[in-house]
Design a protein around this nucleic acid. Structure first.
Lengths: 195, 195
DNA sequence: CTTGACAGTGAACAAATGTTTACTATATAA
DNA sequence: TTATATAGTAAACATTTGTTCACTGTCAAG
């Protein structure tokens, strides 16, 4: 990596920090100060490099970050050979884009209880739930049972045409609803923050 | 909720979709078309309402979304009483902001293997790793053992002054490093996408 | 009714925007 | 050495920006 490349990566990081803080890109005049230039044309050329490198894009004459701008590098399998930390073979992932397909119909839920430990959902975890009223066998659903809310595994016995809810913890028995069953959504992702 | 409020929420959703797609806010002229106005002043007034409602903010005369703009509602405990889906008592959370404190020193890793199933980290999960070379007892670390990469629990026996790595799976024995131990980072979050 | 708030139109405008052009200095490669 | 690409300065400019002011129609409350 040459001196110049280091320079532009540094500046790209400055730009990323600005966006993280302000949730927008700075204007060219703001970048002047940000990068320590004294000519807007210097900014102009720098921006165009980033556009070519696909960190930014211009449409309608407006500047915007690309997905690459935000993305974290995702490294392959843990068990892959030695050079997993190498610069090559990188993939990128933006968490929000990866996890939340439709923000309108999604919400988060903080899990309490241990009814789902069998499939790795623990107390304190956050689950992303997509609002919907139907589910398929195997879906983890948010349902209302006896005026209480729970996460359970939705099961449908096709032969017997019976619907029931199962916990992922042997200590809890399966639940067979008497009448209709209120399903509010299905779990699309599990998130656990450590520390 | 009145007709008017519905109107503005609809338009806010249009704005959110625009941002999700373009990663920037539209200009007032773009909003003209977006919202179906024919006067920029209509946009101006609408924007100011959203600024007051803290969905957007203006600084330096520049418009930007707030954290509230992106955030998903987070609903309280599953076992909480009936009205957990009510509009009140809402909290909001932005995933990227919540999960990634320092994007510069973080990367993602796709987990393979079952050495961590005991603490709910499964094959296919994605872990967010913060690059660092030191760890505390109990940290889940990414370490290099015998030219192979693994996630293990870092343990320090204070009395014996011994460092060792533990799997969260009884099938794997603890690892006692002969010489020095290469630690590359510690796991800060676990993410599992379902479906 | 009247009144006032609300939602929007339309035009005008200073300020800021991104772009272009011409030029300089520095470093790299032939 | 010469040539050439790179990184930046400086000034000029059309276009677009967000804002302001004056005005209109509509609807609900007193």
């Amino acid at each position: 990596m040459t001196k110049g490349e280091n320079m532009t990566t540094d500046r790209l990081n400055i730009l990323k920090k600005f966006f993280k803080k302000n949730r927008r890109l700075p204007s060219y005049s703001e970048m002047l100060k940000l990068f320590g230039f004294s000519s807007k044309n210097a900014v102009f050329k720098l921006i165009n490099k980033w556009v070519e490198a696909n960190f930014l894009k211009k449409e309608n004459g407006k500047l915007a970050p690309t997905s690459k701008f935000f993305a974290l590098p995702i490294l392959g399998n843990i068990k892959a050979g030695f050079p997993i930390l190498a610069e090559e073979n990188k993939n990128y992932l933006t968490l929000d884009e990866y996890l939340i397909e439709d923000p309108q119909s999604s919400f988060l839920l903080k899990v309490s209880g241990d009814s789902m430990i069998g499939i790795g959902i623990f107390e304190g975890d956050i689950v992303i739930i997509e609002k919907k009223k139907e589910a398929f066998t195997g879906d983890i659903v948010l349902a209302q049972i006896d005026n209480e809310w729970t996460l359970k595994i939705f099961k449908k016995d096709r032969l017997k045409k019976i619907i029931f809810l199962e916990a992922a913890n042997p200590r809890y028995p399966p639940f067979y609803p008497q009448n209709e069953l209120q399903i509010y959504g299905v779990v699309r992702a599990v998130i656990r923050k450590i520390n």
